[in-house]
Structures are given as C-alpha cells and as structure tokens.
Simulated assay, not measured.
Amino acid sequence: MPMQRIHAFVAATVLLAAGVQASKAAEAVPATLQPPAGYTLAFTAKAKGMQVYTSAAEGGAAPKWVLEAPVAELTARQGSFHHYAGPSWEAADGSKIVRDKDTPVVTVPARKAGTDIPWLLVKVTADPAAGVLSKIGYVQRIETHGGVAPATPPVRTDTKVGVPYTATYAFYAKTN
C-alpha cells in the first residue's frame, strides 16, 4: 500500500475512533440532564478546583459537612473561567452567569457516587454585559471526579475543608 494511502487510512481510523468516543460520551449523559429544545452546545470547559464544605449543627445535633461553595478554574478554547458560589461562572472578558434561583437544579448521581459529586443541569441568567457567556442559558456539570464531603464527620462546627474535584462543564446557548 503506498505511503499516502496508509496515512489516509490511519487518519480516517483516528477520526472514526474519535467520533465513536464523542458519541459514547454524549450518550453517557442522562436525558434528564439535557437542556430543553432550543438550546445548543456552545462550548465545553475542563474544571479543576475544590468543593468547600463547612461543618454545621442544627438543633443540638452532631456537626455534619454542608457544601459552602465550589471554587474552580475552568479552561476552554474560549478562554479561562472562574467558578464560585452562586453557583456563578465568570469569564476573563468580564461576562458572567449565575444560577437562576427560580429553576430547580437537576441532579443525577455520578457513576461513583461515593467519591464523585453529582452531575448537574443548571439554568443560568447572564449578566447583561456582552462577552463569551452573554448568550448562555444552561450549564451542565458532567464527568465529575472527587469533591464529595469527607466520610468522617467533623468534630466541631465552623470547620472548613476543601475537597479536590475535576469535571467537565458544558455551556448551552439559546438557538436563534
């Protein structure tokens, strides 16, 4: 087989394998986490950060870990993003999105629920400023690793702990 044909065959095989992998990844996201009709995937970003937990006790009960906020850095071809309490996402260009408090967050347990934080679909509202996040209406958190509160209960209240996690965030924009 001539060298050009071998290169073409290898390239086609790699592209086919990548397409199968992308298809498997897309199929792995449960239907309940899909945004409603009229939204399309704008971009995805990889996140690395912490889930911050605070120990709290109610009515004399033993202290337990309560999620305070995420703190993460996201990277994508569109740039870098900060993810923090709200939940909120802020781009380097100043655009920002925040959870729409009127719409419940859809939650699905991660494949390894004992160690990995749940997958989410979050309806968001955009800050009126123009920018990469200005058209985003939904954020999906998938492919999570880590981030679950410690299994050992806290000894006292008001203790904080950061648990490392990674995830993929998918940002969906309204179709025109």
Score class of each variant (00 low, 15 high):
Thr54Trp: 14
Arg5Leu: 13
Ala113Trp: 02
Met3Tyr: 11
Ala91Pro: 06
Pro128Ile: 08
Lys96Thr: 12
Lys46Leu: 10
Val108Leu: 07
Ala57Lys: 10
Ala61Pro: 00
Lys135Glu: 14
Ile136Glu: 00
Thr175Asp: 15
Pro36Met: 06
Met3Asn: 12
Met50Cys: 02
Tyr169Met: 10
Val148Leu: 06
Pro36Gln: 09
Pro118Asp: 08
Val66Glu: 14
Val163Trp: 08
Ala130Phe: 01
Lys174Val: 10
Ile136Gly: 00
Ala113Glu: 14
Val163Ala: 11
Arg111His: 08
Thr157Asp: 08
Leu67Thr: 07
Val124Glu: 00
Gly146Ser: 09
Ala149Gly: 09
Pro104Ser: 09
Ala126Thr: 09
Pro35Thr: 01
Val10Arg: 11
Val132Thr: 15
Ile142Gln: 12
Leu33Tyr: 02
Ile136Cys: 04
Val148Phe: 02
Val105Asn: 01
Pro153Asp: 13
Val155Gln: 14
Ile97His: 04
Pro104Trp: 02
His145Leu: 08
Ala110Tyr: 08
Ala76Glu: 00
Thr54Ala: 10
Thr157Gln: 07
His7Cys: 02
Pro63Glu: 02
Arg156Tyr: 00
Leu67Gln: 10
Arg99Met: 04
Glu58Leu: 08
Val98Tyr: 02
Ala12Ser: 15
Gly147Gln: 13
Thr157Asn: 03
Val71Asp: 13
Glu90Trp: 00
Gly49Lys: 05
Ala69Pro: 00
Arg141Ala: 09
Pro30Cys: 05
Gln51His: 07
Gly86Asp: 02
Ser95Ala: 09
Pro63Asn: 05
His7Ala: 05
His83Gln: 14
Tyr169Phe: 15
Thr40Leu: 15
Ala62Asn: 13
Lys96Ser: 13
Ala26Thr: 10
Asp158Ala: 14
Gly131Trp: 07
Pro87Phe: 00
Pro36Leu: 07
Pro36Trp: 03
Asp93Ser: 12
Leu133Pro: 06
Tyr172Gly: 01
Phe9Pro: 00
Leu121Gly: 01
Val10Pro: 03
Pro87Leu: 01
Ala62Asp: 15
Ala126Asp: 09
Ala129Cys: 01
Ala129Gly: 12
Val122Ser: 03
Asp102Thr: 15
Gly137Trp: 04
Val71Lys: 14
Thr13Trp: 12
Thr144Trp: 04
Leu121Met: 04
Ala91His: 12
Ser55Asp: 08
Ala26Glu: 14
Tyr53Asp: 09
Asn176Ser: 12
Arg156Glu: 12
Thr103Trp: 00
Gln34Gly: 11
Ala129Tyr: 03
Pro36Cys: 11
Thr44Asp: 11
Ala25Arg: 12
Ala42Gln: 13
Tyr53Ile: 08
Val106Leu: 03
Thr107Ser: 14
Pro164Trp: 04
Thr13Ile: 05
Thr159Gly: 02
Thr107Leu: 13
Ala62Lys: 13
Ala62Pro: 04
Ala12Asn: 13
Leu120Pro: 05
Leu133Cys: 10
Val14Leu: 15
Ala62Gly: 08
Pro153Tyr: 13
Thr115Phe: 03
Lys48Gln: 13
Ala22His: 10
Asp127Leu: 02
Ala12Val: 03
Val155Glu: 13
Pro109Arg: 07
Ala91Trp: 06
Pro104Val: 04
Glu68Met: 12
Ala26Asp: 11
Gly59Arg: 11
Gln140Thr: 14
Leu67Ser: 11
Lys64Thr: 13
Ile142His: 06
